[in-house]
Design a binder for these strands. Sequence first.
RNA 1: GUGGGUGUAGCUCAGUUGGUUAGAGCGCCAGGUUGUGGCCCUGGAGGUCGUGGGUUCGACUCCCAUCAUUCACCCCA
Length: 443
Amino acid sequence: MNQNKDTIVKPSILSGFLELLPEDQIIFNNMLDTIRSTFESYGFIPIDTPVIEKAEVLLAKSGGETEKQVYRFTKGDNDLALRFDLTVPLARFVAQHYGVLTFPFRRYHIGKVYRGERPQKGRFREFYQCDIDIVGDEKLSVINDAEIVSVIHSTFKKLGLDEFTIMINNRKLLNGFFMHYGIKDNVEVLRIIDKLDKIGADNVRKELVASGISENVADEILEFTNLCGDPDDVISALRQIDIDNDDFVSGLEELETVWSYIKAFGLDSSEIEINLKIARGLDYYTGTVYETILNHHKELGSVCSGGRYDNLASNYTKKKLPGVGISIGLSRLFYQLREANVISVSGVKTTTKVLFVPLGDTSAYAIKTANYIRRKGVNTEVYLNDGKLAKKLNYANKLGIPYVAIIGEDEVKKNTVCIKDMNSGEQSVYTIDELTEFVKNIM
RNA sequence: GUGGGUGUAGCUCAGUUGGUUAGAGCGCCAGGUUGUGGCCCUGGAGGUCGUGGGUUCGACUCCCAUCAUUCACCCCA
């Protein structure tokens, strides 16, 4: 019986939403596990919050741009919104549960967030963020800013990535610099500066002048933001700049402290740089800011960024709760690694290690034996449909299952299992006792 | 929100200056006899050529609209 064609709905998902096939999902999940365990190795505590929040909570602070990107809807009388990051929910969380949390509160949070913007290469409307933040009660040492870098560095290394650069800057330093030159709209200036790599110094200079900045100051800005690279070099160059401005001075001081502790964490300038051009991110950052790029895919933007905020939860509590944190854009990171073939096709489409194939009326024995090695920690599956052996072996083949246990009348009679190595094609017969040895060998 | 590209089989794409029954590769299913996969051979299923109009004797091909999708700008993970 064929379904009427008119009633068939074309199976499709919204554009901008990432959906992976099993082969990729397995790799994605492995990355996620790696990130989670690295975060926990530094003592970060897991939380999870609802994907939907009250709009008044989520949008308590937001300025124009974020508000435009928020998925917002009503259900009955409730004004609701999907979270667009994990930091705002964190602010609500710490304010709401202030009384029972222990500070400094070191939390990690891995989850999906939503932004209703036009999809583009490596940009999604729904994507995973993996956040770590450290929230202090009234105070939070700037040493934490250095630790964040260390955590991210470890995480990327554990993920098997070597070619990345964590770029560090400080908002106070920038604000102080701009103030010194009498620039009012430093957000506008930062946006123009940010285009340096894309459009070049000449065009940036033109845009700066067009925005009302004098040519002299534009040159000063270009020269300043050109400072970039080995932190020791940048810091000594910054020391030469004669700007007597509180923000500038304390920003530089913070930057120096952060760098000195980054070194204490055992890192050097091979993956860390100071880059005075990076200053973006949400506007609540007030001190250190971070951005991380893959060296061979700079054009695809930051895969991990964050920073320091003096007062995270001011919209939800009168307590002063300073914090510092960073977020890995896992969907983007995965997508880019996949595009660049850093993650290659494995051919493995299941986590099953052993497939039991019963022939004839041997399913009960196969299930019993499968249970036995499953309890020993081996991912095990039993093929429960009728069919020729060839078809069953092909099933294992297509999914990339490395071992098949063939169970026939002979095996049942002799209380044995015939295990075939799908890569070499070799088969050997094990008694139930000998299976323990087999399990040890493949774990 | 602004601007460009692309819509033909499940996937990747051919399709000659408009002309008969729209093709390939991959994938899928079946077979090449009974408990041995990957390779190979044979056969099969699967498309109202995104949708709706228009031009024409005739449109996958030309024109318009619409939808979908994608890339870029803006902004960001």
